[in-house]
Design a protein around this nucleic acid. Structure first.
Lengths: 164, 164
DNA sequence: TATTGTTATACTCTATAACTATA
DNA sequence: TATAGTTATAGAGTATAACAATA
């Protein structure tokens, strides 16, 4: 009970990982084909497009989207190069960089969103009833909140003492 | 109804993607720290360790694990270099390569599995009841089978006609 | 002294295309 | 002619560490 997963858990774990991997792969293909965007880039643009009102900094974006600041800087550089976002110093805190989505950025999101949604609907939602969707949402929200609430500890060093 | 997801679907989609991303990230960290393995490498080893009996070829592995043959060749090269697998010509079909896991490969799997399981249990299963796990397994199995059953079409070309 | 963000750099993963060999 | 697998190569993503600027 302490050291293994029961068969039900194994089965659930593998199905979950496999299904989401397939979904992510299909979605990535669609975003690349129809908008030249990686999934992370799409997430950044979609976050900005949705955050209407609030001014988001690089740190805000990194928290929700990606796992290192330098990785986000790199992606933001690509998006800025393509004219999809702009960056400017924050008026409140001179250290911070506020990221804005441009009109072209919004157009790009609008261009890929229907296809994106189509893929998700066809692959994920087609075999699920309304009730299933609600149930799945409840369970995954609970799981996500649980994961977000814990300091990323179990994932951390154990063999190498250095990484800390 | 045709062109968008309802709020329940959006909510479910985002929670699912986010939860699984967090889980995958944590699991990858653990596998790397405790066994020097990427997730794909772990999947390959675990598949071989589980397939006891059946002789798996590169194509068998590629189908279940990864999305291009050359990618698998690369990963198999790394695993072979580290003495975790061996490759040999198939007796049945001289074109095929049979992949075997070595004793060291099994030991490596055994070394990382407890930590892997601990991460999954702590992050994913802790907030779920037995009934929840069963439900989630049912839904994700249905989704996965649905995705596996369709030719990867919706994900495919639409802009460029070439890729076919 | 801590935080925000960038830069330089290096590494890993993945895919495409060309190729060999077997069927 | 089609399939199994490898090789060469190139591109994208991500992370670490060092750094500059601001709080």
């Amino acid at each position: 009970m302490a050291d293994s997963l029961n068969p039900e858990q194994m089965h659930t774990y593998f199905a979950l990982i496999e299904a989401v991997s397939l979904l992510q792969y299909a979605v990535s293909q669609q975003l690349q084909a129809e908008g030249g965007l990686s999934y992370v880039q799409f997430e950044i643009l979609a976050t900005l497009a949705t955050a209407e009102g609030r001014a988001l900094t690089m740190t805000d974006l990194a928290d929700g989207v990606v796992y290192s600041r330098s990785g986000l800087t790199h992606q933001a550089g690509l998006l800025e190069r393509d004219g999809l976002i702009t960056r400017r110093a924050s008026p409140d805190d001179q250290r911070a960089t506020v990221v804005d989505i441009t009109a072209a950025g919004r157009e790009r999101v609008a261009a890929v969103l229907p296809g994106h949604i189509a893929v998700v609907r066809e692959l994920l939602f087609e075999p699920l009833s309304e009730r299933d969707v609600r149930t799945l949402g409840t369970l995954m929200t609970r799981a996500r909140d649980h994961m977000r609430s814990r300091p990323p500890r179990s994932a951390a060093p154990r063999r190498s003492r250095r990484a800390g």
